[in-house]
Design a protein around this nucleic acid. Structure first.
Lengths: 206, 206
DNA sequence: TCCGTTGGCTAATTTAGATTAGCTTAATAA
DNA sequence: TTATTAAGCTAATCTAAATTAGCCAACGGA
């Protein structure tokens, strides 16, 4: 019963590193601790394993998004949380979030998987853009819109602000995904980036 | 004699879309217009074709970098070019550069190839980071350093500025690589981004 | 002209990887 | 207790890809 879960887990690890085609059912079986033919007691074929992973990815994401509040709906609540936070605390939050995205195993593996497989299938391409561009941007955009309307931030296109805030962090995330040894450097850049971003847009700064 | 070039070209197209393992020597041969075994008159095996592509990629990049001046050395010259350019012209240049990166076939294909294969091999990972993070950043950084010292830009860490300038553009590039239909939207965002960037950092603005 | 080299072909060959067949055992429910 | 099902195994099987063998024509230089 738990074997099925385990298959998905191990397959995810393998796929995210080598891509679908370079992982053999044999590898997956070995990682799980069974023989290849036994996999077929749980999945119709290799494709099905991949689909199951995608399903999990979607589910996980929906949960995460609800949690962290990546949807516009929560921006209102979150804006309250951020409203009277100091710059240092804001930086700390940014770094924490970055580290969370970087180190959370599931998220990291899913991200790498989508990165590798994105050109194979337009459904995957859309999923990638949604999860790593559209949704984060629209969430951040909502947040900044509120900041602007409450006078915390200077007046500007909130979506552009969101892009300017998010893209550097996202870029550094992808750097660390492929070169984990650069984490320190990335953290430093993020800190300076957020600091500078505050200088640019915060109304109480000048 | 030209067959060899053609093989590399067609293989690049195929690899960049489906990745190394999902392209069969047969596919390459067919694209070139010969039979699979004939490929072996030009390359020892499939791996060699891939290596040859990587070689081209490196060469091309060195040339491009020299041309566009992605190395710090040229920043001085380029700074002169940008020195007395209006905001609108600056935006136009940014968009042109973006479109060039996006549409130049070789560059686009190489970029996609590296994206897909980056986790397979740390050499590829390093190459990716160098070409799409380190080098652009250090070039932009040099440029901004000059802008700052000549009083064109406000005082700030040039590398952070470079990150803030480059990351959004790079991010949009990757969006368009997987969803080419979003080019217009990307161009709009780039325009607004550069405009805003100027507002933030240009000394003659406010 | 003639020979060797280049680059193409068809027809094997080899290999590896996905999947199926069919057996076994243990738990589970009637 | 017995029948059924779930989940494992080993031993095929099937297929598709990569590569090799060996033949042939064109062509460029001696």
């Amino acid at each position: 019963m738990n074997t099925k879960k385990k298959i998905i887990e191990e397959a995810l690890i393998l796929f995210s590193e080598k891509g679908y085609s370079d992982v053999y059912v044999n590898d997956i079986a070995k990682a799980v601790g069974i023989k290849a033919p036994s996999l077929y007691k749980h999945f119709k074929n290799k494709q099905e394993i991949f689909h199951a992973i995608l399903e999990e990815l979607r589910e996980d994401y929906t949960k995460q998004a609800a949690n962290i509040g990546i949807h516009g709906d929560n921006a209102n609540v979150d804006a309250g949380i951020y409203a009277d936070v100091t710059e240092e605390a804001f930086i700390e939050m940014g770094k924490k979030l970055f580290l969370y995205f970087l180190h959370d195993d599931r998220m990291r593996l899913f991200r790498k998987l989508l990165t590798i497989e994105q050109f194979r299938d337009s459904e995957l391409a859309d999923l990638y853009s949604k999860q790593y561009y559209n949704d984060p941007l629209s969430y951040q955009g909502e947040l900044f819109k509120i900041f602007i309307s409450t006078g915390k931030f200077k007046r500007a296109d909130p979506l552009v602000l969101a892009l300017q805030f998010y893209a550097p962090i996202y870029t550094l995330l992808t750097v660390c995904d492929r070169q984990p040894e650069r984490e320190q450097e990335a953290l430093y850049m993020i800190e300076e980036h957020i600091r500078q971003f505050n200088i640019n847009y915060s109304e109480d700064k000048q």
